[in-house]
């Protein structure tokens, strides 16, 4: 889908099936107004999110990536999000070392009932990414 020039950026959201996807659904059903930059990819669990999903998105066109899963202790698979927390924290600290602003990547916890929280997260993250503008990727480096 083409980006609305000047208005939208590309933000990819990896949402866990059990909580955050439900949360986004709740927000939708409740007709909470949300920015339209986000493209949602539903994953079974935040523990399914390989940090490389985030990297690949950022290197191939995304200006921001959001990962959301069940709150700690609420994981449908008991411990998936505990693993996710470690991996994503590692990534969050690593990205700026390579020159990518850590603000382009956010991970958080949203339950299925938290429609309002979801609205808040998406709005705030989108605002944050808009503050940074499009991610500058110089293709075909110096070959």
């Amino acid at each position: 889908m083409p980006v609305v020039a000047g208005k939208e950026l590309r933000i990819v959201g990896f949402l866990c099936n059990w909580c955050s996807y439900g949360g986004a659904d709740t927000a939708g059903v409740s007709r909470f107004k949300q920015p339209t930059d986000l493209r949602i990819i539903r994953v079974p669990c935040s523990g399914r999110v390989d940090p490389l999903f985030v990297v690949k998105s950022l290197l191939n066109g995304a200006d921001g990536v959001l990962v959301a899963g069940c709150h700690p202790n609420d994981c449908h698979y008991s411990e998936g999000n505990f693993y996710a927390r470690r991996r994503l924290e590692m990534l969050k600290q690593f990205l700026p070392y390579m020159g990518i602003d850590a603000k382009r990547f956010h991970y958080t916890w949203v339950s299925a009932s938290e429609g309002a929280r979801w609205q808040q997260v998406v709005s705030d993250f989108t605002k944050q990414v808009h503050g940074l503008g499009p991610l500058h990727r110089k293709e075909e480096a110096s070959d």
Binding site: P51, L52, V55, K56, L59, N60, R87, M90, L91, F94, M98, R137, K138, E139, E140, A141, S142, D143
Partner: peptide, 17 residues
């Protein structure tokens, strides 16, 4: 290209975390 080279090195680094 630059994207793929960076991606490869990110794969290498992250798999060694």
């Amino acid at each position: 290209n630059g994207t793929e080279k960076l991606m490869y090195h990110m794969i290498h680094a992250l798999h060694l975390a």
